[in-house]
Lab assay of single mutants.
Amino acid sequence: PVYLSVKADNSMFIGNDPVTDETMITALNALTEGKKDTTIFFRADKTVDYETLMKVMDTLHQAGYLKIGLVG
């Protein structure tokens, strides 16, 4: 499974590897070998604001990742 996490300080990680807004999709493409039907499990600290969550989800959708599971 692929886990994308947003921490309380808005830092992002794919698994244990830090990513930025600019590198997130490139890292996901490498990890999933470009398979856009891969489910991305998205988790965020409860203090992360809604705007940040939606920005990340919008970026995922624009890149073609449509299977996003929200996890606690």
Score class of each variant (00 low, 15 high):
Met24Glu: 00
Pro18Gln: 12
Ala30Thr: 10
Lys55Met: 08
Met54Asn: 07
Val48Tyr: 03
Ile14Thr: 01
Lys46Phe: 10
Asn29Thr: 08
Ser5His: 14
Ile40Asn: 00
Asn10Ser: 09
Val2Asn: 01
Ala63Met: 03
Thr47Ala: 13
Thr32Gly: 02
Met54Trp: 10
Leu31Tyr: 09
Asp17Ala: 11
Asp58Asn: 14
Leu66Ala: 07
Val71Ser: 10
Asp21Pro: 15
Asn10Met: 12
Met54Leu: 11
Ala44Gly: 04
Leu31His: 08
Val71His: 08
His61Ala: 12
Ile68Trp: 03
Thr32Lys: 02
Ala63Ile: 03
Thr32Ala: 03
Ser11Asp: 05
Thr23Gln: 08
Phe42Lys: 00
Phe13Asn: 03
Leu60Gly: 00
Met24Gln: 00
Lys46Cys: 13
Tyr65Glu: 00
Glu51Phe: 10
Thr23Pro: 01
Glu22Gln: 11
Lys55Arg: 13
Met57Trp: 09
Thr47Ser: 14
Tyr65Lys: 00
Asp45Thr: 04
Leu4Phe: 08
Leu4Glu: 00
Pro1Tyr: 14
Asp9Leu: 04
Met57Ser: 03
Val56Tyr: 08
Met12Leu: 11
Lys46Trp: 10
Pro1Glu: 09
Lys46Glu: 14
Pro1Lys: 10
Leu4His: 01
Leu31Phe: 07
Gly34Thr: 04
Asp45Gly: 05
Ile25Met: 07
Met12Arg: 03
Glu33Lys: 14
Val2Cys: 04
Glu51Thr: 10
Asn16Ala: 11
Asp58Leu: 12
Ala30His: 10
Ile40Ser: 00
Ser11Val: 10
Glu33Asn: 14
Asn29Cys: 05
Ala8Val: 06
Glu22Val: 10
Thr20Ser: 08
Ala27Met: 15
Ile14His: 01
Thr32Glu: 01
Val71Met: 11
Asp37His: 08
Leu28Arg: 00
Pro1Ile: 09
Leu53Val: 14
Val2Thr: 03
Thr26Met: 10
Leu70Glu: 06
Pro1Leu: 08
Met24His: 00
Val71Gln: 09
Asn16Gln: 09
Ile14Val: 13
Asn10Pro: 01
Met24Arg: 00
Leu66Asp: 10
Thr23Val: 04
Leu60Asn: 00
Val19Thr: 05
Tyr50Val: 12
Lys7His: 14
Val2Ala: 03
Ala30Asp: 08
Glu51Gly: 11
Ala8Ser: 12
Leu60Cys: 01
Val48His: 04
Asn29His: 09
Ala8Gln: 08
Asp45Tyr: 05
Asp9Val: 06
Thr26Leu: 11
Asp9Ile: 04
Thr47Lys: 10
Ala30Arg: 13
Asn29Trp: 06
Leu28Ser: 00
Leu4Cys: 03
Met57Gly: 01
Lys7Val: 06
Val6Met: 12
Thr52Ile: 14
Leu70Met: 12
Pro18Phe: 09
Phe41Asp: 04
Phe42Leu: 15
Leu4Trp: 01
Ser5Ile: 15
Gln62Met: 12
Tyr65Thr: 01
Phe13His: 05
Ile68Leu: 06
Gly15Leu: 04
Thr20Gly: 04
Tyr3Pro: 01
Thr26Gln: 13
Asp17Cys: 13
Thr26Trp: 07
Thr26Ser: 13
Gly69Gln: 15
Lys36Asn: 05
Val19Ala: 02
Ala8Ile: 05
Leu31Asn: 03
Phe13Asp: 02
Thr52Met: 11
Asp9Trp: 06
Asp21Tyr: 15
Leu66Trp: 15
Ala27Asp: 04
Pro18Asp: 03
Leu28Cys: 03
Pro1Trp: 10
Gly34Pro: 02
Thr47Gln: 12
Phe13Met: 09
Asp49Phe: 06
Met12His: 02
Thr32Phe: 06
Lys46Pro: 15
Val48Pro: 02
Met24Ser: 01
Leu4Pro: 01
Ala44Gln: 04
Phe42Gly: 00
Lys7Glu: 09
Lys35Val: 07
Asn29Val: 08
Tyr50Gly: 07
Thr23Glu: 09
Lys67Pro: 05
Lys67Gly: 04
Gln62Ser: 11
Gln62Asp: 10
Gln62His: 09
Thr26Tyr: 09
Ala30Val: 10
Asp21Ile: 15
Asp9Asn: 10
Asn29Tyr: 08
Pro1Ala: 10
Leu28Ile: 11
Pro1Gly: 09
Ala44Ile: 13
Gly72Asp: 11
Thr26Asp: 14
Leu60Pro: 00
Thr23Arg: 04
Leu70Asn: 06
Phe42Trp: 03
Val6Lys: 02
Asn10Phe: 10
Tyr65Asp: 00
